[in-house]
Each structure stands twice: as C-alpha cells, then as structure tokens.
Amino acid sequence: MDQNWDDLRLFLAVAREQSLSAAGKLLRLDPATLGRRMARLEKTLQTVLFVKSPQGYALTEAGSDLMQRATKAEQAMRAATAGVPVQSDRLSGQIRVGAPDGAANYLLPQVCAAIAAQNPDLDVQIIALPRVFNLSRREADMAIGVSAPTAGRLVVQKVTDYKLHLAAAEGYLSAHPQIASVADLQQHRMVGYIPDMIFDRELDYLADLGVNRVALASNSVSVQVRMIQQGGGIGIAHDFSLPATPGVRRILTEEVSLTRAFYLIRHADDRRNARLSAFADALAVGLRAETARLEALAAGQTAPKA
C-alpha cells in the first residue's frame, strides 16, 4: 500500500470511532485538524471515504474497502514491531462473540457467516443472552452492547446506530380499533420486556410512551417479535428485525421513532492482538452494512448493496 502510514493510522481511528471528536481524543489531535487530514486523504485518493452527517462519519463502500486494506497494513506493522513474522491474511482459531439476542438473531448470523466464508479455518461462536457480558471473566472475546460501559479496563467502539418503531401484525390491526395517535395505545394490548428484567436503561422503551401495563412480555427480543407477529399486540420492534417477520408493519412512524446504538466492547489487554482486531474490524463493517440494508428494506426503500 503506497499511502502514507500516518494518514492510514488517522483514517482507521475515524473509521472505527465514526466521529472526529472521539477519534481526536484517542489520537490527541484537534478534530478540525483531523477533518482536514481526512479531506486531504480523500482528495489524494480521488474518492469519497466517508458520508458526513450530524451523527458522525459513516464509511462509504470505498471507505470500507480502504479500511480492510489499512487493517492488514496495521497488522503487518504490529507484527514487525513485535519481532514476529506476519501471519496469513486469513483468520483462524476460535472467536466468541457475546450479544443481546436482537443483534444475535437478526444481524450476527449473516455477518459472521460472511466472515467465516472468507476464513475457512475460523470458528465463530455467538452467545445470545439478554444481559451485559463480563469480559474480565473472559465470558467472550468481545461483546456487542447497547450502551457504552464506563467501568473496567475496556476498549469501546461505537459500531452503528439502529432504529426502532412501533409495529403490529396486519391481522391484529384489521381486527382492532384504529391507531391514529400514541394516546390510542391505551386501548390495545402491548408487547414488551418484562419490566424487572430490563438489563439496560436504553431498552426501557414503553415507559416513555406512558405504557403502564405490558400484557405480553419476554426478556427476549425475538420472542417479543414473534408475539407481535402472532397478533398478540403492539410493541417496539427493531427495524432490522422486520424483513424477517412477514405480516408485521411499522405504525405511527412519525410520532414514535427511536434511535439506539450498538457498541463493540473488548478487553483492553486485547488491543494488540492482531487476530482479534482484524475480526473486530470485519465484524463492525459487516454490522453497519447489514443494519443499513435491513432498515432500508423495512422502510420500503431500495436496499443498498451489501
């Protein structure tokens, strides 16, 4: 790769953090200076690497391609510094990923299958549990979380935002009173989390809507979605779950639209592990692309290329 390594180092930080300010803190570099460096890199390569928005910097297809190549260069640099030979580009061995069951059911299977297809000697294990994982006890090599932990020796990277909306089965909607506003929800059965088993405050969706009773509840996202699909009632569903749930559609999308985020969480001691870092980068890129693809399908739009 003939690009200046320092430019690539800065690029990787912005790509992983999806924010000039967050990357700037890690690099101890002024965000404005970092922004100019990224603009210069795009000009040099004559391609757009990021989609810039108030929410941050998201990689374009060209940016994702450069990230993969830059990650390989980073691995080579680390190996050379450590005095060990550069390993094959392919990943091998076992990697265990912990995730809440929404991500584990609707996103990770296809993302991890794609990574495994490119790395035949790699074994990927997905632990789907509706709770926070303890990486210090090595329950997993890395975890997906819905909030950024503030305690412990951890490295936290925001992966992507995702959207949630109220949803109901077509059959339920046709058999029950019309829903024209949030106030109308009081006349309907609600599906959601078991209140005392909500493991992260980011998941307490219904309380903000003034819903006091959850008629059908589960600590599992996939069970909630199935309850909605079976006509059990109305609930908050991840947009990325709806393409896999025929007969269910979003409602009151203008009045109720929630945005949450997935974070990739790793133990600080693993930062210099080239194998885990390469997998983490591939996982983050895949999760961003698959979330965008499925959300576009849910919204009835043309899905971007995977």
Rank of each mutant, 00 (worst) to 15 (best):
P100F: 03
A274N: 01
G152E: 01
V84Y: 09
K305N: 15
L26S: 05
N4G: 00
E202H: 10
V223R: 07
D200S: 15
Y263E: 05
Q230Y: 14
V155E: 14
A183L: 05
T81C: 11
A268K: 13
R28F: 02
R16Y: 01
A22D: 09
L166A: 09
Q230H: 10
A82F: 02
L34Q: 00
A299G: 12
P100N: 02
S21W: 02
L294R: 03
Q87A: 12
A296L: 01
A148M: 07
R78G: 15
Q118I: 04
K158L: 10
E42S: 12
E139Y: 02
E255Q: 14
P100E: 00
L135E: 05
P130D: 12
Y172T: 04
I144L: 09
L154C: 09
T71P: 00
G300K: 08
R78S: 11
Q157F: 15
M38L: 08
V223P: 02
V256M: 15
E290G: 00
L209M: 01
L276K: 10
F199R: 02
K72R: 12
V155F: 13
A39C: 08
R9E: 07
L258S: 10
G210M: 01
G233R: 15
F50I: 04
A237Y: 11
L283H: 05
N212L: 14
D2H: 09
A167I: 14
Y57I: 01
K305H: 07
T302Y: 00
A244G: 00
A114E: 14
P54V: 02
D184V: 04
L12C: 04
A169S: 15
D7C: 01
V51E: 06
L203R: 14
G152C: 12
G300F: 03
L45H: 07
R189D: 11
R260H: 10
H165Y: 06
L20I: 05
R16G: 00
N212P: 04
S241L: 00
S19N: 02
A62Y: 05
F262S: 08
A76F: 08
E139V: 04
Q3G: 12
G231D: 11
E254Q: 09
S257N: 13
P109A: 02
I228F: 15
L209G: 06
R272W: 15
Q75M: 09
D121L: 12
S53Q: 04
V248N: 01
A278C: 15
R131L: 07
A289S: 06
P54F: 07
H165V: 06
A282R: 05
L297H: 00
G63D: 00
A274M: 03
A167C: 11
L45N: 06
A180P: 07
L129K: 13
P31M: 04
A274E: 13
T33F: 05
S218P: 00
Y106C: 14
Y106L: 10
T33D: 01
R201D: 11
P149A: 06
D89Y: 11
G247W: 13
G231F: 12
V225K: 03
A284T: 04
L27Y: 15
V124F: 02
F279M: 14
G171E: 13
L154W: 07
R28I: 10
P177H: 08
S174V: 06
L129M: 15
